[in-house]
């Protein structure tokens, strides 16, 4: 059955149509949804889209920056206030994909995708959903139960800006250069006070079905100086509590073996 398309000029109108429809999806850049349409995916029968300029805005306020969910990876790369996220957006797909792929769509992408979301998770982003006011929800909570949000619309993503730019680190490991998809991705936010790490957040993507936190690594880092001994301890627990998957790129065993190596390189600041 061919898919139906409904267009609205506001996100609110689109949200109402989504909640009324039986099996509809909100269209971002379409890099995943149009694939599904081309494949004849029967799990949804309607695409809902909104031509709402507000969903493509970037606003800096106080210690953070609020990104419209419809902002593309290419726009992230080009935006002055998002330079801390540019190295992340730059490694999503090739140039054409980056002109289309949105930040909002990345939140819903399954392995091996979700590189940008791993960075948002490490930075402790918050999401605002259309039709739900207030402070929005933490990205951790969103990812824990992501399927629940498939029929809703993310309006904005608010990201705290790292006070020390060097505190945010990111590495995407892929086999094909320069573009390949991730074997695994690591994003780490390691703020320090008086030389010690306080409030470490470390996230992986492609180490499970969706981006997740490496809580054992965070515990090993917290309160410590980022020295050789701490890095050894963090690497030793790189996969504690994590069950990586096997896919066409790598087996679970391989992911477990190399995650510690890449984590160690990221923490020592070693370039490959």
């Amino acid at each position: 059955m061919p898919v139906k398309v409904e267009s609205f000029d506001s996100l609110d109108g689109a949200a109402r149509a989504l909640s009324a429809a039986r099996s509809a999806r909100f269209l971002g850049g379409g890099t995943l949804l149009m694939r599904a349409v081309n494949d004849g995916d029967q799990s949804f029968d309607t695409l809902v889209r909104a031509v709402d300029p507000a969903s493509r805005q970037v606003r800096s306020e106080g210690d953070g920056v609020t990104i419209g969910a419809g902002v593309t990876m290419a726009e992230v790369v080009a935006h002055r206030d998002l330079s801390f996220l540019a190295p992340v957006a730059r490694v999503v797909g090739g140039p054409a994909v980056r002109n289309m792929a949105t930040v909002g769509g990345n939140l819903f992408a399954s392995s091996p995708y979700g590189d940008f979301t791993a960075a948002l998770l490490a930075l402790g982003a918050r999401l605002e959903l259309v039709g739900q006011g207030g402070r929005g929800i933490e990205i951790d909570e969103f990812l824990r139960d992501r399927e629940r949000y498939v029929g809703s619309i993310v309006r904005t993503i608010s990201v705290p800006r790292p006070r020390d730019p060097g505190a945010f680190r990111f590495a995407k490991v892929s086999r094909i250069k320069p573009k390949g998809i991730a074997l695994l991705t690591i994003a780490a936010y390691l703020p320090q006070s008086a030389g010690r790490i306080r409030g470490a957040r470390v996230a992986y993507s492609s180490m499970g079905p969706r981006p997740l936190r490496a809580t054992a690594v965070e515990r090993a880092l917290d309160g410590q100086y980022l020295d050789a001994a701490t890095i050894e301890q963090a690497a030793a627990v790189a996969c504690d509590g994590i069950e990586p998957h096997t896919d066409g790129l790598a087996s679970a065993w391989y992911r477990r073996e190399v995650a510690a190596v890449h984590l160690k390189r990221l923490l020592t600041g070693e370039r490959r």
């Binding site: 398309v5 379409g30 149009m34 054409a96 002109n99 289309m100």
Partner: peptide, 15 residues
Amino acid sequence: IDGEPHLSCLTLAET
């Protein structure tokens, strides 16, 4: 599209 590369197979025509 407006000078920037896009994948036409993944672009919903009406956009």
